[in-house]
Amino acid sequence: MTVKNITVLGSGVMGHGIAQVSATAGYNVVLRDIKQEFLDKAMEKIKWSLDKMVTKEKISKEEADGIYSRITPIVDLNEAVKDAEMVIEVVPEIMDLKKQVYAELDKAAKPEVIFASNTSTLPITEIANTTSRPEKFIGIHFFNPPQLMKLVEVIPGEKTAQEITELTQEFVKSVNKQAVLCRKDVPGFIINRLFIPMVHEACYLQDRTNATLEEIDSAVKFKLGFPMGIFELADFTGMDVIHKATVEMHLRDKKVINPHKTVEKMFDEKKLGQKSGEGYYKYSDDKYERVELSEELAEKCNPIQLVANILNNAAWLITNGASDIEEIEKACKLGLGLKKPLFETAKEIGIKNIVDELNKLAEEHGEFYKPDPLLESMI
Rank of each mutant, 00 (worst) to 15 (best):
K35Y: 13
K4D: 12
E299L: 11
V291I: 05
E376W: 13
S49N: 08
V3Q: 00
V220P: 09
V172A: 06
A234N: 05
I318F: 03
Y280G: 00
T121N: 09
K99D: 02
M198Y: 15
K300A: 05
T165F: 10
K339Q: 12
K150F: 12
V220I: 04
D235Q: 03
S323V: 01
T131Q: 01
L9E: 05
G157K: 02
G279E: 07
I318Q: 05
E232D: 10
T262S: 14
D286F: 11
F189L: 05
Q178G: 14
E57H: 03
F368R: 13
I67A: 00
E170F: 10
M239P: 09
E348Y: 14
Q20E: 12
K333I: 00
F195L: 06
I351A: 00
M95D: 04
E166P: 14
K265Q: 15
R32E: 06
L342P: 05
E158W: 07
D65H: 10
N118V: 14
V152G: 00
V13A: 13
L297V: 04
P123M: 11
E278G: 12
L311N: 12
L311F: 11
M95Q: 07
G12C: 04
R208S: 13
T121Y: 12
E158R: 10
I67P: 01
N118D: 14
V154Y: 10
L181I: 11
I379P: 07
D33Q: 10
V81H: 03
V13P: 13
E44A: 02
S294H: 03
G10F: 11
K47C: 07
N313K: 03
E357W: 09
E296T: 03
Y68M: 04
V180K: 09
V91R: 00
A80D: 02
K4H: 15
D235I: 01
V172R: 00
A219N: 03
P341N: 07
I34V: 15
L9N: 13
I18F: 02
I242N: 11
V307N: 05
